[in-house]
Design a protein around this nucleic acid. Structure first.
Lengths: 131, 131
DNA sequence: CGGTATCCCACATGATACTG
DNA sequence: CAGTATCATGTGGGATACCG
């Protein structure tokens, strides 16, 4: 959670940061950005690297990122023609906050899974007791 | 996005960090944790502070946080009886990664909104051109 | 190659009522 | 006070087909 500031909006669903945090927390945005970190890539190159994403969803995700100024879309002339997507400085600047969150997750994933298993065992035991 | 590691899983929807990131990215988890930073609180105290959340959703959110070991639930004896929720050390340790992300958003929200407006103006202009 | 156009569904969230 | 139960809904995401 954000640090405990005087800013009361952080407690409200209409905090202006919500739409932005919602997008970068969606299913694919973070991974699309990750794919573009090493170098710009073409549409189908991104799609191949993100096994499981559909064309429709990749298009939607790229459009939202472009609209936010995090990705730049460039039509390539030449043969074969194509479209290239690249990180903007704004998009690249997201790398650090995401890395902090990702590293936190990696550091605590084992502890979290142990908690989950313990919680689930308890739930099973409670259900048994109530029989 | 996570930094560019050798770990190929970061590109995959089945990366083991997904379920955790999905939860802490859900609509209310972050705000519930934020409310608990200054001090433990009772169910209805949390609910009052998060205007707009329903009882059902608050219960679900707290159960998931408890299951992950981020929040501890304590039944208070005495009169009136009640239930108190408190951050665990694990839950509190999320404060920093979240603050980094939140600060990034605050720092760039103006730039992002300008990009969005420019993008939307372009879309309107393109629609007009195609008439 | 890089998309749109349709259709569909699961699931997160919400509204409301009831309870130990 | 702290929930559960029930029902409703919007939308993010997926499947598939077609297009310039």
């Amino acid at each position: 959670m954000p640090r405990d500031t005087e800013d009361e909006r952080i407690y409200r669903a209409d905090c202006p940061t919500r739409p932005i945090l919602d997008q970068i927390g969606d299913k694919w945005s973070m991974m699309v950005l990750a794919v573009l970190v090493p170098a710009p890539r073409r549409f189908n190159a991104i799609k191949r690297q993100l096994e499981g994403i559909t064309q429709r969803v990749l298009t939607q995700t790229l459009r939202k990122l472009e609209r936010n100024g995090m990705v730049r879309r460039r039509v390539l002339g030449g043969s074969p023609p194509g479209v290239e997507y690249a990180l903007t400085p704004l998009g690249r600047s997201l790398q650090e906050p995401f890395a902090v969150l990702y590293d936190w997750t990696l550091a605590h994933i084992d502890a979290i899974q142990k908690h989950q298993e313990a919680y689930d065992r308890e739930a099973v035991a409670a259900a048994r007791d109530s029989d």
